[in-house]
């Protein structure tokens, strides 16, 4: 799947993403920049993203195929359907010190399992209520729809969520205060 004719151009074009770390050609400079950044903010969030296999995970792959550049501060867990994500998974993530959790599925009408994403909405409402009960800001959780063709959108959705969680600072449940690069 490799081999875009315009690799370099695309990388350039993609580097305008909003919240991602500033792009520098060398690893050294990037790291230096990073250090400056962490002195300023001193916070890189831990974010878990649940992505459904058919749309959102595929959309993330599509972002790759198109070399969209976006924030790396998240880790994806693939599930077959967004409807699989129980509130318990999200709560566990927070218990273990996550600063934000996102669930991403197919747009309405696109679900591989017809109405799985509608059920994800119901689950997410419960999740949100529980998150609030824990005393967490509900902005730390998000439910998004990204289709298999929406690589650009995937990048934007991630960037926006990372920025949002970063602005909230570390989760009050994140006792470890462990830094990850």
């Amino acid at each position: 799947m490799a081999g875009k004719t315009e690799d370099k151009k695309k990388r350039k074009a993609g580097s305008g993403s909003t919240a991602g770390p500033k792009k520098k050609p060398s690893a050294k400079k990037a790291a230096a920049k990073k250090r400056t950044a962490s002195r300023k903010k001193d916070f890189t969030p831990n974010i878990v993203v649940f992505a459904c296999n058919w749309c959102s995970y595929a959309g993330a792959d599509n972002a790759g195929v198109n070399r969209i550049q976006y924030s790396p501060n998240f880790r994806v867990i693939r599930t077959m359907c967004s409807g699989r994500v129980t509130p318990a998974f999200v709560l566990k993530a927070f218990k273990l010190g996550a600063d934000g959790v996102m669930v991403s599925g197919c747009h309405f009408g696109d679900c591989h399992y017809i109405f799985g994403n509608y059920k994800a909405v119901e689950q997410f409402e419960k999740t949100k209520a529980l998150v609030k009960t824990l005393g967490l800001d509900e902005k730390r959780v998000a439910l998004e729809w990204v289709s298999a063709a929406e690589g650009t959108r995937w990048g934007e959705v991630i960037d926006n969520f990372v920025a949002q969680v970063t602005s909230l600072g570390p989760s009050p449940l994140n006792h470890s205060k462990k830094k990850r690069t």
């Binding site: 792009k23 050609p25 972002a63 550049q69 976006y70």
Partner: peptide, 12 residues
């Protein structure tokens, strides 16, 4: 697809 291609400019 979800790492080297999308974080090309921040290899570390």
């Amino acid at each position: 697809d979800q790492c080297s291609w999308v974080h090309t400019n921040v290899p570390r």
